[in-house]
Every structure is written in structure tokens, then in C-alpha cells.
Design a protein around this nucleic acid. Structure first.
Length: 454
DNA sequence: TCTGGGGTCCTAGGACCC
DNA sequence: TCTGGGGTCCTAGGACCC
């Protein structure tokens, strides 16, 4: 290590990762400052498991994914406050976050609802003090404009920026900037970073890597790239190279077009009868199509999954796919196609999860003109051998107005107000998630509790 | 009361073709 | 009668992320 290394390092472009601390909790605190300083958790959509925790809640020992009823019962967690997830709020705060960062940086990639990568020009990295001051300015602006607290990391690659950001959070710093560090110092940090903490290394890969003697991020950085490709895939190879300092994952600009829309849920009670499953698929298909329509897309293919609990010794998992020709956003057509998966179900077994997956998405109205559907034969391309084609061109085709009408009624009277006949939603079906019986996030018990106290 | 839900990317392997 | 190789396209499934 010598002075030349530092200079060379400082001249290369760097990347910053800006991450909101406990995003969902921080959003809740923005609209309700009385939550600041208290242990707060945000609960999942369905059954009340914890999906976000404030630092105080983490210190108390509340775990990610822990069922809310356990937290409620445990005397250690007496002071914990819960909020139902309010995705509308988080989405709105996320767009303010993007606006704040983009006001100071030209090249920004929105990686997730609470994380952004920012490309730092070489001149920023070469400035006195490295890229730090620019990133600090970004974080301060985020705090001022949105009220959201952030932690940032700077590195020569995205993966190194992730390592730096993780270290910043651990040390309770706002910023960890590796752009001014020597390679030896970076290596020392990697040496104390377990490989499972590296971005892109999950528990499965970590186990395989550990077995191969790769335990730290430094081991991974120094591993032979070809060996990594054989052990995992090109993804793992890229991760290793990125840790070694070679950028392999470019900063993405515009978000990629949506490729799929899914609606997957566990049922509150397992269903054993095909007629119940028919209701489940009807409702799930309806919700998936509603999201498809919101996005202005039509789907050219549909997959249906139905499973029993994977922990059962005789677990069952069925997947069924079909083409939708022409691509459609019409609920009745998708529902009808989804019902064709029903024969796969083994009546009597307790199914507790089902899903609707819409793929081959294209913007509505952009479909190329269809070839003539000669004789109504089911010969549409894109149809797998084991699957069928749900023809949407026959006399059964529902008018385009049905979807729009359903959207309007649902918007006005809520989900479930109107359903495809077979759903028979008079009253809650036994399989409905408990959480889905709540009318709106703003009227959950917890919000009401707090309002009463003020 | 027992691991949520919505995504992406990659690979293996089969079908099919020349 | 025996013997191949190399493409492409598609799907299922694995692994990861937040």
C-alpha cells in the first residue's frame, strides 16, 4: 500500500448506497412523532407478523417475522407499539425520497422502496475528503425534505457499497466511505464480514461456500472466479469480482418493465374441497387482474399454484400454466382460465396456499394484430405441451366493459363487493385471511387506540 | 395461533430442428 | 444399420432480494 494506490482509487468512480433506516417504522414516525424513541413494529398484511422494527424494538429482542400475538403476550415487549402496514404512505414517502436524492445527484438507481444507488463522479471521489461530503449533503437533504433517517455506504462497486452501508448501520454511523481507503483497509473490513452478509449470498449459497472453505467476504473476493461460477452461477462470480473491486453490476437507470403480476396468499383455514378452492382462485384472480389493470398491462400467460403446507410429510404442490390468447386484462377470462387448474387438486387434502401469476405482460393496446384464429383451433403459440390455451376469442368472451365495471364497483364499495358468480362471497368465506377482514389500514385497532388516548 | 408477499435472474433439461 | 452435434425455445425450479 502506498500513496499512489490511494490516488488511483480516489480517481475511479464510486457508488453510494443510500438506505432508509427501518423504512416503514420511519414513515410511521413522520406522520406520528409520538412514536419517536419508542419501540415500534409494523405488521404484515395478513396475519400480524412483524415485518419492520425500530431500533428500540430490535434491542428489546423482537425478531423479524415474529408473530404479533407472541409479541403481545411476552411481558418483555409490553411497551411495543404496532402499526398495520400502510403501503400507500410508504410509496408516497419513497417518491419523496427519490426526489430528494435526485435533486443533488444526476445518476440514481432506485433499487427498492427504501434504497437507492447513486453514481459518484470521479471528481467527487477525488475531492478533498473523498465522496463523503456529497453523500452527507444528500442524506441531510433527505432528512430535511422527508424526515427520513438514512445510512449510506460508499464503495468502488455496488457490492462494496453494500458492505460499507451495513458497516455504517452496525456502528451507528450515517456514512461509511471506502473511497478514501487503501485496498488493505478494505480487505481488513471484508475479512471480518461473514460471507452470508454479502449482498447476493443467501443462506443456501453461504452453506455451500462455507463447505468450500469460503467464510468471509475476503475469502470470496479472493476466490477463483471460475470456481465461483461452477459452485454457483455467473451471479456468484460477479459478486466475487465486485468484492475484489471490479464493477460487474452496472447502475441501472430507468426501472425495468414489469414482467409479472402475482397474487399469492396463505388461507386462514386450509381448504379441502375443490368448490372452496374455486372460490379462492376466483378471488385471487380478480385481485391479480385488478393490479394488472392498474398498471395498464395485459397478460399473455397465466400460472396457478395450489399447495399444502410444505412441512407436511405428504406435501403437495401443483403448478398449472396456460397461454391467454389474445393477451387480456379481463377478469372473467382470467378467472375462467384459472378454474381449469382445479382438477389438479386432490380433494380431501388441506391446501393452505394458492397463487395467481400473470406473465408475458405487454402494455394494453400494444398487442400486435392477431393472426386469424382459423376454425377456432387451439393452436396459439406459447402454449406448453402439458398445458392448454384458454381461448378468449370465442363467443364466451366477456365484453371489455366487464373489467372496467368491476374496477369501478370495487373502487367504490371495496374488494369483494362484486365478484364473479361462483365466488359466492355473501359473508366471509372460512378460508379468508383474518387480516383481510379489516376494512382499511387507517381503521385498525391500533390506530384507534392511539387516537382515543390523544 | 407457528416463516409474508411480490419480485428478479439464472440454469438445467426436454422438445424440436437441421 | 449405425452414429452425432449444435442450435433455439420453453418451462420448472432454485436462489436471491427487500
Amino acid at each position: 500500500m502506498n500513496a499512489a494506490d490511494v490516488t488511483a482509487g480516489a480517481r475511479t468512480p464510486h457508488v453510494a448506497l443510500v438506505d432508509v433506516r427501518s423504512m416503514y417504522v420511519s414513515c410511521e414516525r413522520v406522520i406520528d412523532p409520538s412514536l419517536v424513541g419508542r419501540p415500534v413494529v409494523v405488521l404484515s398484511n395478513n396475519d400480524g407478523c412483524v415485518i419492520a422494527r425500530s431500533g428500540e424494538a430490535k434491542l428489546l429482542g423482537v425478531s423479524m417475522g415474529q408473530p404479533w400475538f407472541q409479541v403481545q403476550r411476552d411481558p418483555r415487549f409490553g411497551g411495543v407499539v404496532a402499526r398495520s402496514s400502510n403501503y400507500e404512505l410508504y410509496g408516497d414517502m419513497a417518491s419523496r425520497l427519490v426526489a430528494s436524492v435526485s435533486s443533488l445527484a444526476a445518476d440514481v438507481e432506485v433499487y427498492s422502496i427504501d434504497e437507492l444507488f447513486v453514481s459518484l463522479p470521479p471528481r467527487a471521489a477525488a475531492a478533498v475528503g473523498g465522496a463523503g461530503p456529497m453523500v452527507v449533503a444528500i442524506c441531510e437533504r433527505v432528512a430535511r425534505w422527508t424526515g427520513l433517517p438514512t445510512a449510506a455506504g460508499v464503495g468502488a462497486t455496488k457490492t462494496l457499497a453494500k458492505v460499507a452501508q451495513r458497516e455504517a448501520k452496525q456502528r451507528r454511523l450515517n456514512l461509511m466511505d471506502l473511497s478514501t481507503w487503501s485496498r488493505d483497509r478494505v480487505d481488513a473490513l471484508l475479512a471480518v464480514t461473514p460471507v452470508v452478509e454479502v449482498w447476493g449470498i443467501g443462506s443456501r449459497l453461504a452453506r455451500r461456500l462455507n463447505a468450500a472453505g469460503i467464510r468471509s467476504a475476503l475469502d470470496l473476493a479472493r476466490a477463483d472466479p471460475m470456481m465461483l461460477r461452477r459452485t454457483g452461477s455467473v451471479v456468484l462470480e460477479r459478486t466475487g469480482r465486485e468484492l475484489a473491486g471490479t464493477p460487474c453490476i452496472p447502475l441501472g437507470g430507468e426501472p425495468a418493465a414489469r414482467r409479472q403480476v402475482m397474487h399469492t396468499r396463505m388461507m386462514g383455514e386450509p381448504v379441502t374441497e375443490p368448490e372452496q378452492m374455486r372460490q379462492v382462485l376466483t378471488v385471487y384472480a380478480q385481485r391479480a387482474v385488478a393490479r394488472l389493470r392498474e398498471a395498464g398491462l395485459v397478460a399473455g400467460a397465466l400460472s396457478v399454484t395450489m399447495s399444502t403446507s410444505p412441512h407436511r410429510p405428504d406435501a403437495r404442490h401443483h403448478t398449472w400454466s396456460t397461454g391467454l390468447a389474445p393477451a387480456t386484462d379481463q377478469p372473467l377470462e382470467v378467472i375462467r382460465a384459472a378454474h381449469r387448474a382445479l382438477p389438479l387438486m386432490e380433494a380431501g387434502r388441506p391446501y393452505n396456499r394458492a397463487g395467481i401469476l400473470l406473465t408475458d405482460l405487454v402494455p394494453a393496446g400494444s398487442q400486435p394484430a392477431l393472426p386469424l384464429d382459423l376454425f377456432g383451433l387451439e393452436t396459439t403459440p406459447g402454449t406448453g405441451s402439458a398445458t392448454g390455451t384458454a381461448s378468449t376469442t370465442g363467443p364466451e368472451r366477456s365484453g371489455p366493459g366487464v373489467g372496467a365495471a368491476l374496477d369501478a364497483v370495487t373502487a367504490r364499495f371495496g374488494t369483494g363487493a362484486l365478484a364473479h358468480g361462483v365466488a359466492g362471497l355473501r359473508g366471509e368465506p372460512v378460508w379468508a385471511m383474518r387480516r383481510e377482514q379489516l376494512s382499511a389500514p387507517a381503521t385498525t385497532q391500533w390506530d384507534q387506540l392511539l387516537t382515543a388516548r390523544t
